[in-house]
Amino acid sequence: MSNRHLKEKGIESLLFASGIVAVLALFLLCIFLFRDGLLLFEAYPISSFLTETKWFPTSDPAHFGLLPLLLGSLIVTAGAIIFSVPLGIAAAIYISELAGPRTAGILKPVTEILAGIPSVVYGFFGLVILVPVIQRTLDLPTGQTALTGSIMLGIMALPTIISISEDAISSVPRAIKEGSLALGSTKWQTIYKVTIPAALSGISAAVMLGVGRAIGETMTVMMVTGNSAVIPGFPSGLFAPVKTMTATIALEMGEVPQGSEHFHALFAIGSVLFITTFIINIIANHIKRRYRFNL
């Protein structure tokens, strides 16, 4: 008997050890990321990092200003969200409220294809197809612009926004919708006065996760935004090249000597990126947890 008991306890401990691997991974990730990031500030003042408007890592003296990269990430993400949120929510409403079950059964996997396409393929498509189109139609010196990045990122964020919004809209209890219809409202009035408000927190969670996805995306933006580290204006900056935090890390890490100031600066950028998405995730999950209906 005690033998069997010991075995059960042993297995439970083993499972617990695997259970905390995620915590351990996150912990180590923070340690290694922040450690190399903080080393930058031994030589380079943190105030300059946060307020400098220039990212000239190879000039002498070097400038490691976060702002152009942070704003670059923000403008590309903002453009993506402006474009994909209305589109995604509309598609989610269509799937859950208008399409019949069979049509919905086809549309859902079709939109999920978007989630499966690797980001480098999006980047390639954007570079080869969209960049020339943007250049010609807007008559710009180059088609590699923040806008191009926004469009591609918007498409990539669509499946996240659609599937989570769709989930939230479908989970609005039928009784609430029928109550409204029974009062003589049209289906559309019911959707936008009753269903959407009831699903709002779920939809906001979807938007937050979409933002998180867009801000962290690397390959696509790197291939279509031109990668020039200047502080973008708004909205004029949409039509010029920008450089995001993610693209900076991926592009420059290959060329820097390990342990150099530049190397640490890239880790510092990575830390900022991590903290940003960490906060976005916490907010998104907090909202998501609240939207479940208790019926």
């Binding site: 991974a25 990730l29 690397t218 993610t246 890390i249 990575g270």
Partner: peptide, 12 residues
């Protein structure tokens, strides 16, 4: 949070 961390950060 691991699920939401950008892949380039995993790279770092």
């Amino acid at each position: 949070n691991l699920a939401g961390t950008p892949s380039v950060v995993f790279g770092l």
